[in-house]
Structure formats: structure tokens, C-alpha cells
């Protein structure tokens, strides 16, 4: 039983890492530019399609991954310059709508290019198989690699934000844009950089997700809503909050799916229990978010704006 818990906990953390990779960009973009980008999930999808496409051509996972990231960056750059840059001074309503429309466009465009049939990718041979963890459970190596990649990105981001000049500008810009601009920092260039980097994290996550799920239109939106839950729980704009929120959401969601059904069967008629437990475990993270927001209306680690 302890083994099962441990395995599910790892699954939860692994989901959390995906969520973190997508949430990191989302929360940076919101924190720095005050923009809600619903189309961020589309970049996740673009990453997944890119790796599926390049994998078909090169037959190498690593090469495909390396080729995918510039493609995602290019798409993100176009999106930023053409649409997002016009939304910085608009209110949240306009941002929600314009990026919602962008989702319609990107999804439909992807359908035109790739059709409606999902694409599948194999786990790269080097990372297939399982690994024995702490002598307790044997766990798929690929999933361990994902957890590692997520942690690496988290550390990388922390170094950038806490230790470099760029990070200093980002932190300052989040607190007070005008002052930073007055001091001679090119804010619009910084906007583009942050957007493209955030998009690349999402694309990276999408590429890694390729072998685990089917690559299909709409895969980004389901994840996106979960990511919103993460960053809202963590406090929008805070990377630390996004990491914590992502792990909490990942673990709660996975644990809920794994153990709520068993728990409910003890109290309810089995014919009802299966349906209700599916619903309850899907609802659990939203319940969690509501509880967090009711207690702390700006999330766990709110950023301070002046």
C-alpha cells in the first residue's frame, strides 16, 4: 500500500512539473505585463505537434526536441508582435477575448494542417524502461527524466530571476513598470523576451508530453485551465507560487483520481460511486482553489505592485 502511495505521489509530482513548465510562462507574462494569455496552452500544443513532426522526419527524439524549441519560439514571437503587444494597455476582458479568439484560430489552423486524427510518439529508447527508486518502487525512467527536467527549469529560472541583471529588471518591472522604463530599460523588448521564453517553457512541456499523451487539437486548453488553477493558488505573478501551486495541484489531482474511488465505494452503492468519484476527483482541485481564494483572495504568494 505504501508503495502505491509513493508511486502515485511521484505521478502527482510529474504532473506538477508539466503544470509548472506551462504555469511559469503564464505567471511571468501576467506578473510582468499584466496580461492574461489564454492562448498559452496553444504553445504547449504547438510544442507537441512540432516534436511529432520533426520526429517523423529525423527519427531522433533529441534532435526533434532541439528543432522544436526554435519553432515554438518563432510562433511565440509572431504572436507577441502581432497581437499580444497590443493588449498590454488593455483591460483583462479584452485580453481574455482576444486570446480566446487566438485559440480558435490556432486550433482550427492546426486541424487544417494535421487533421483530426491524434498523433502518437514513442518514448525515446534511451529513456524507456523503468528505474528502481530507493529500492521501493520501479518507476518509468522517462517520467523520472521529466521530473528532473522540471526541477532543472525551476533552478534555471531561479538563477535568472534572482542572480542576473535581466532578472533584476524583471523583478523591478513587475513592481513598477513606469519607473523601470524611466530608468532607460527597453520595456517592449523585455516584454518580447519574457513572452518568448515563457512560450518556450510551454513548448518544451508540450514536447515532453508527446510520448505520454496523444498529440491532438485541444490538448492545450485542458492543461491551461489546470495551470490557471496553479498560478491562482500560488498567487499570480510569483514563480515560487507557480511551482508550489503546480505541485499541489498535480498531487491533489493524481491522488484524488487514485484514491477517491476506493474511499467512496466504502460508503456508497458501487453503481453510483464510480460516476460520483470521477466527478469528485475532477472537481477536487477546483474546490481546493476556491478554498484558497476564499481564505486568501490573492493566492498564497501574492506579488506586490505599486
Amino acid at each position: 500500500m505504501a508503495q502505491l502511495y509513493f508511486e502515485q505521489l511521484l505521478n502527482g509530482i510529474q504532473l506538477g512539473m508539466f503544470l509548472f513548465l506551462v504555469s511559469a510562462g503564464l505567471t511571468l507574462i501576467f506578473g510582468f505585463m499584466n496580461v492574461i494569455n489564454l492562448a498559452h496552452g496553444s504553445l504547449f500544443m504547438i510544442g507537441a505537434y512540432a516534436i511529432a513532426l520533426f520526429h517523423g522526419v529525423t527519427n531522433s527524439f533529441l534532435l526533434a526536441l532541439i528543432l522544436s524549441l526554435p519553432l515554438v519560439a518563432l510562433c511565440a514571437w509572431i504572436i507577441e508582435v502581432v497581437i499580444i503587444s497590443r493588449l498590454y494597455t488593455r483591460d483583462h476582458l479584452d485580453q481574455v477575448l482576444a486570446t480566446f479568439a487566438l485559440i480558435l484560430f490556432i486550433n482550427e489552423g492546426t486541424t487544417i494542417l494535421f487533421g483530426r486524427t491524434p498523433m502518437f510518439l514513442d518514448v525515446p529508447p534511451l529513456l524507456s524502461g523503468t528505474i528502481s527508486l530507493f529500492g521501493v518502487v520501479s518507476y518509468p525512467l522517462y517520467r523520472v527524466a521529466i521530473i528532473g527536467a522540471g526541477l532543472a527549469v525551476a533552478i534555471f529560472l531561479w538563477i535568472i530571476i534572482a542572480k542576473t541583471r535581466l532578472g533584476m529588471q524583471i523583478r523591478a518591472g513587475t513592481t513598477n513598470r513606469e519607473t523601470v522604463e524611466q530608468l532607460g530599460v527597453n520595456i517592449s523588448k523585455l516584454n518580447t523576451i519574457i513572452f518568448v521564453v515563457g512560450a518556450m517553457f510551454a513548448g518544451f512541456a508540450g514536447a515532453l508530453a508527446g510520448p505520454l499523451t496523444s498529440v491532438e487539437v485541444g490538448m492545450g486548453e485542458n492543461l491551461l485551465i489546470l495551470c490557471f488553477v496553479c498560478i491562482v493558488i500560488g498567487g499570480i505573478g510569483s514563480i515560487r507560487g507557480a511551482l508550489l501551486g503546480a505541485i499541489i495541484v498535480g498531487v491533489v489531482d493524481t491522488m484524488g483520481r487514485a484514491f477517491v474511488p476506493d474511499l467512496l465505494v466504502k460508503f456508497l452503492d458501487p453503481t453510483y460511486a464510480s460516476g460520483i468519484s470521477a466527478g469528485l476527483s475532477s472537481m477536487s482541485i477546483y474546490l481546493l482553489m476556491v478554498v484558497v481564494l476564499v481564505v486568501k483572495p490573492t493566492g498564497l504568494f501574492p506579488i506586490i505592485r505599486s
Binding site: 490557471f228 491562482v232 477546483y286 483572495p297 490573492t298
Partner: peptide, 16 residues
């Protein structure tokens, strides 16, 4: 809640 948090919490209730 206010602002963007309100957008997200209503979205969450919808999802629930």
C-alpha cells in the same frame, strides 16, 4: 475576490 482572481474563480466554479 477581485479582478483576474474573480475571472479565475468563476471559471473554476463553472468547471466544478
Amino acid at each position: 475576490t477581485k479582478g483576474v482572481y474573480f475571472i479565475m474563480i468563476t471559471l473554476s466554479f463553472g468547471q466544478m
